[in-house]
Amino acid sequence: MSNEREVRVLEIKKSVFENNDREAEKLRDELKEKKIFLLNLMSSPGSGKTTTLKRTIAALKDEYKIGVMEADIDSDVDAKAIAETGAKAIQLHTGGMCHLDAGMTRQGLDALIENDVEFAILENVGNLVCPAEFDTGAVKNAAILSVPEGHDKPLKYPLMFEVCDVVLVNKIDVMPYFDFDMEKCKEYVHMRNPKAEIIEISAKEGKGIDEWAAWLKKEIDAWRG
């Protein structure tokens, strides 16, 4: 048994997310070099993500070449709706995962470069839990919280609101029909993340889109230099 090797203990002591975090940093460096601003957009299903996207594209399409990266877990209904706006739709393959990670985002990078995209939006999987755990390599993170979901969501899904730079409170047009307390909602978001920007919008009616577009423009221009 002279060739038999001993069992040895190798200490690793590394976060399971470490490789992904490293990959995300690398991706951000490449985006910076190519002057591409990538926004990671997260929300629950049915919060109005596609409608918000369409409004956002309409507001900024004269300023930037816009691309939207879509996850394949969504039906192609969304991709079609995006293509109709004139933005470049890029399909990502997640293999049915509940979130996107940096490796998946990377699949779309070449397509962004080929199409000279300046402002890219990553439409994450509709879910308030898993997407918050994985750095996608995006420059900024945004979450949509819609009025019918309730003002207590920041308490129930704290990590989502901790990682967000901006929270869009959508469907404010239906406020009269729900027991949604806007002040409490803002308080809860800031409890989890004092630096989060909160913008009230109605994607359906176009309310608040100017403020949202102005926030984006400021961030995009700062990133692209």
Binding site: R8, V9, L10, E11, I12, K13, S15, V16, M191
Partner: peptide, 20 residues
Amino acid sequence: SGNTFLVQGNEFMIKEIEAI
């Protein structure tokens, strides 16, 4: 108070392996 934060409990670490 609700002014609280998590000190530990959200870790997900690979500690070690036994290998040949």
